[in-house]
Every structure is written in C-alpha cells, then in structure tokens.
C-alpha cells in the first residue's frame, strides 16, 4: 500500500487530494508517518523509526498504525501497490 501519487502534503499537516478536491488535516506524528509511507518505507521500518523517536511501545504503535492506515484507506488517500513480477 502507498499514498496516492498526486497527494499534496504541506509542512503544517494540511493535505490536499487534487483528484477529489478534499482537504484533510493531520497531527505531527500523522504527518511524519505519511511522509515515511510516501518515501516508500515498509511498515517495520516505520515502526522502528517511530518507536525510536517517541515514548511508545511496539504494541501500542502497531494498533494505532493499523487504525491510521484504515482511516487513510477510508478517506481514499491510498492505492494498493502493484504486484511486482520477480
């Protein structure tokens, strides 16, 4: 899963989806995660990165991360990655 290509994410946490015209706001940690996903980081990397930077345990973050991802999907901000042919 990755973030739709054309999504504009500003430093302030304001997100604009040019294909639907919808705008969104996110908190600083949400912004950080979005940017990591956009860079193409895998879930494990993201978890490592966040748990290293914040006072949070693995389980808590994992729950919150799934919830965040499902919200992103619900808001139609994501696309499924195409299967790579090995």
């Amino acid at each position: 899963m990755s973030i739709k290509k054309n999504i504009a994410i500003s430093e302030s946490g304001f997100i604009f989806d040019p294909s639907t015209g919808n705008s969104f706001t996110t908190n600083p940690i949400g912004l950080e995660i979005l940017q990591l996903i956009k860079e193409g980081r895998e879930q494990n990397e993201i978890k490592k990165h966040i748990t290293a930077g914040y006072h949070v345990d693995d389980n808590t973050f994992e729950k919150d991360f799934y919830d965040f991802i499902s919200t992103l999907q619900q808001l139609k901000l994501t696309v499924e990655n195409e299967k790579k042919n090995d």
Partner: peptide, 23 residues
C-alpha cells in the same frame, strides 16, 4: 537517545469540512 524521545500521540487524520471546527 532515550532522553531525546518525544511525547507520543496517536496519529490522527480528518477531513476538513466546511463547518467542521479546528481547535
């Protein structure tokens, strides 16, 4: 490293609606 860790908050994202209030 431990000392520089930041306060954690659950990530949230929500749609900006006309009429929906921010803080």
């Amino acid at each position: 490293m431990y000392l520089t860790k930041k306060q954690y908050e659950r990530p949230v994202i929500q749609r900006v609606n006309v009429g929906l209030m921010n803080k």
